[in-house]
Amino acid sequence: MHILVIQNHPGSPAGILGQQMEARGAWLQVVEPLTGAAIPQSADPYDGVLILGGAQSAADDAGNPYFADLFALLRGFHAAGKPMLGICLGSQLLARLFGERVYRHDHVEFGFLPLELTESGGTDPLLRGLPGRPHLMEFHEDAFDLPADATLLMTGSGCRNQAYRIGESVYAFQCHIEVTPEIVRDWARLPAATEANGGADPIARTEAEMARHMEGSARFARQVADRWIDLVARRLAAGLRKAG
C-alpha cells in the first residue's frame, strides 16, 4: 500500500499513526509543502492520504498558496473513493473541502483533554471497542463547522467537533491522536504552548498528563491506524477485483 502523507509543518510528523502504518506494511511518501516540496498532481499513484497538522490556519489561502493544489488533489482522492485521514489542520482542511468554514475558536485548546465518543462513534468501524471517554492531546486555536454529510464521532466540552466521518472513506480528527512523547515535549517548549497554557509551565503540565494518558492515547492511535489501513486494503482489493 502506498500512502501519501501531507506533513503541513516540520514539527507535526505522522508519529504513532505513521509508525503503525509502516508496521502494517504501508509505504509512506511524505511531502512537506513548507520546505518547497510540490503537491502531487494526481491521486492515482496512491492508495490513501494522511493530512497532518500545522501551525498555519486552514482558512489562510493567501499565506498558504499550496492549499489550492492540495484541495485539487484531495478532490481527486475523494472522487476515486480512496481513504483520507485528516489530523487537526488536516481535519479543518477536509471540512473546507466539503463546503464548511474554518474560523478562530474562542480559546486555544491545549493538553490531554477528555473527549467523548458519540453514539455513532461507539459503533464506527475505526472506533468501536475504544474507551468512550479518552483523554487525547489538543493544540489548536481554530475550529470548523461540521460538513452537512458528516457523522460526528467524537465531541468535547471545549470544542464540539472533535472527529467525524464522511461516507465510508473520509475520517478526520481535530485532536492530535498521532502524538508521541517526543512530539508533545517539542510542542511544550514552544512559546505558543506557554501562551495556550495561560502563562503557566506547559512542560510540567504535559509531563504529568502524559504519565496518566499517553499509554491510552497510543493505544487509541494504533487502533485507528490499524483499522484505517484495513479500510485502505479493502478499498484497494475491491478496486483490483473490479478492474479484473
Results as ranks from 00 to 15, higher is better:
P83Y: 15
P83R: 13
P65Y: 14
F67I: 00
S91W: 07
G76Y: 03
L73I: 05
L74F: 11
L74W: 13
G54F: 11
A79S: 11
I87L: 14
G90A: 08
A58S: 11
G53K: 09
G54N: 14
F77H: 13
N64Y: 10
G76I: 01
L73S: 12
F71R: 11
V49G: 01
F77L: 08
D69C: 03
A95M: 07
A58K: 07
Y66G: 00
F67E: 08
R75T: 12
A62L: 12
D47I: 01
G76L: 01
I87Y: 11
G53P: 06
N64Q: 14
A62V: 10
C88E: 04
R75F: 04
H78K: 10
G63R: 08
A68C: 00
I87A: 05
A68S: 11
S57F: 03
F71N: 07
A58H: 08
A62M: 06
Y46W: 15
A95Q: 05
D60G: 09
A68R: 15
A80W: 12
L85Q: 02
G63Y: 13
P83Q: 03
R96P: 10
G90P: 09
M84K: 07
K82T: 09
P45Y: 11
D44M: 08
L74S: 02
G81P: 05
L50I: 15
A58I: 01
L70V: 04
G90K: 02
A59L: 01
A55N: 11
Q56R: 05
L85H: 07
P65N: 10
M84P: 01
P45E: 10
H78E: 13
G48D: 04
I51W: 13
F71Y: 15
G53M: 07
I51L: 14
A55K: 09
S91D: 06
A79R: 15
L93D: 02
A72E: 15
A59K: 11
L74E: 06
L73Y: 14
Q56E: 13
A55R: 15
F77A: 07
S91G: 14
G53Y: 11
A62D: 11
A72P: 00
D44N: 03
F77D: 08
A68D: 11
F71A: 00
H78G: 00
